[in-house]
Amino acid sequence: MEPFKNVSSIATPFQQANVDTDLIVPSRYLKTIKTTGIGEGLLYTLRFHEDGSPIKSSVFHQPLYANSAILLTGPNFGCGSSREHAVWALREAGYKVLIGTSFADIFASNCYKNGILTVTLPEDLVNELMCAAVAGLEMAVNLEKQEITTDEGRVISFDIPLARKDYLLQGLDEISLTLQSVDNIKAYQEERLQHLPWQSFD
């Protein structure tokens, strides 16, 4: 995984509750066997009319936010289907940081595995950042310092478990790290099967 780098960008304000992963990527974009080429489907029904013409009023078509790498979200963002395609689509669209009051468990985990930082903040702070984004202010996200700084100089700090932070900053590979414990896993499996012989597999 790519190490996480600090991000400085305007943030896209997207205050909608319970945005589910079907909305983030409709299922017809799931018929791929790759992790790329999905960005086109990102929030499709919010960006395009049924006939394929763009919904001009959509925040995702505003030139101001065209190069945004930060997405400000409503509560329970990413609920529903476990599809990692939702995260791949966000990544393809250039988002590196998501900031909101809450993220669905599987979605947050999928983000983390793909090097995308999710920042959970209290509602008043998210609203403050939404206002800044609407006003067109840029913000900088610094993971080492665990700080978001707006162009106005407002500094908001956020929590993240230390290990998770290191993992993102170093761009570690989870599978390789787990395989450092491969002997323990094998021993565990063997012992488990001895105790629970009915769980055997041939």
Binding site: T35, E84, S109, N114, I175, T178, L179, I185, Q189
Partner: peptide, 17 residues
Amino acid sequence: GIGTSEVAHTLATQTLV
């Protein structure tokens, strides 16, 4: 439920973090 990266992790290690 898990995402695809975790499917890969389970296939490769029979564990999850």
